[in-house]
Every structure is written in C-alpha cells, then in structure tokens.
C-alpha cells in the first residue's frame, strides 16, 4: 500500500466516522422509536394505580388508589376507589363522571368540558405514546435509558402553568407506563404508579 493509498483509505474511514456520528439518531429519538413501536401493538391497557400527593397544604401525604382502563382509539376510564369513590369515563366525544356523594352519573360532552378533555388528552397520549401530540405540549428530554424515562416540560397550554415538569417512566419491555411524576412549583409533586398491568386483555362490558 503506497502512502497515498493509505492516506486516502484513512480519510475515507475518518469521513465515514464523522458522517455516521452526524447522521446517527439521538438517544431520545431511539428511545421514542422503541416506545412507539411497542405502543403500536397495544390496543388496550388495564391496571391498578396508586397516587401519592405530596402537597405543602396537606398535613400528610395523601394516597389514593384506583383503576385505569384504556382502549384504542378513544376510550378511557379513570376510577378512584380510595379514599373517595370518584372518576370519569370517556368514550369518544361523550363522557360521564360520578362521585360517591352525588347520586347517579353526570353525562357530558368532552368538547364542552375543557378540564376533563385536557386530562384525558394527556392520559391517552401517554398510554399510546402519541409523541406527535405530546410534542405540541412539551419539550422532551431523556432522563434514563433503562428503564426509559422522559422528562416533559410544558411549552403551552396543558395542565396549568404551575406544573414545572412531568417525568414518565416505561416498563422494562417498553410496553406501558409504570410511573408518572408531576412536579409542581415549590417542590410539591404527585407520583402515580401503575401495577397489575394487563395489555390487550379482554375488557369487561360496561367499563366504558
């Protein structure tokens, strides 16, 4: 090999390395792609949840538990069972909510209840890993790669200006969300953990 040929070969290698580095996807992109791929095969999710509310205005941490159900494309049930029985169901554009102190259920149009709509939009976006939609509300960074944890910082609208960030952690197999951590001003936070997750299992009639 002459010096000229060697130089040319070395330059090619160097150039390829630089180009590969420049063109390579970022870890965030890779993680998002992995999650999206898994989410595509999920048609329904059912799980228990536990919520810990760490707010300075409560004397103690408030824990609540309940059930979460989701079915593509637009069915959602958020049911709190303790300390109070309350919750809501979204089925397309229609919804109903209930509370243990109020008799019966209140039916509503999702479009006319912006708060419920905002909440359900968030929950559904996380459940389906709808990054296109999440990008309209947050800037996203990757906190950890294993398990995948995204930190989302609100850029517009969403759930109020007092939320500083939301951390979403996925299961080891990237199939579903295991924890949501909502950070608020003044160090307050809300942690929701999901357990007993069943993917694509049959959903009882009347859930939605």
């Amino acid at each position: 090999m002459t010096i000229k040929t060697f130089r040319a070969f070395a330059l090619c290698i160097l150039f390829s390395l630089v180009a590969t580095t420049l063109l390579a996807a970022t870890p965030l992109d890779t993680a998002r792609a992995r999650i999206s791929e898994k989410a595509a095969s999920v048609s329904s999710i059912q799980s228990r949840f536990k919520q810990e509310k760490h707010l300075s205005i409560f004397r103690e941490m408030v824990e609540s538990t309940g059930l979460f159900s989701f079915a593509k494309p637009d069915k959602l049930r958020w049911e709190m069972t303790t300390p109070i029985k309350t919750g809501f169901v979204i089925n397309g554009g229609e919804g109903r909510k209930w509370h243990e102190l109020i008799e019966g259920e209140e039916h509503f149009s999702v479009e006319r209840d912006p708060v419920v709509k905002a909440v359900s939009d968030q929950l559904m976006s996380w459940a389906t890993a709808d990054f296109e939609k999440l990008d309209t509300m947050y800037t996203m960074e990757l906190l950890t790669q294993s398990p995948v944890t995204f930190r989302m910082t609100p850029i517009k609208g969403g759930l109020g200006g007092a939320i500083t960030s939301i951390d979403i952690t996925f299961s080891a197999d990237n199939n579903y969300v295991t924890e949501v951590l909502v950070n608020e001003d003044g160090g307050d936070f809300t942690r929701i953990t999901f357990a007993g997750v069943r993917i694509n299992a049959e959903i009882a009639k009347g859930t939605f």
């Binding site: 509310k53 205005i57 408030v62 609540s64 109070i84 309350t86 909440v119 929950l123 759930l159 007092a162």
Partner: peptide, 21 residues
C-alpha cells in the same frame, strides 16, 4: 372546600394548588 380537596387529588387538580389557596 370538599370539591377543592377532590380536585386536588384528581388529575384535573395538577397545578391548581396556588389558585385554590
């Protein structure tokens, strides 16, 4: 006040502490 409590422990109450106080 009970509504405020329920709101605070529901997803709709995220970030509402300041206003409710």
């Amino acid at each position: 006040i009970e509504e405020a409590y329920r709101l605070l422990i529901s997803p709709a109450g995220w970030g509402m502490k300041g206003i409710l106080r």
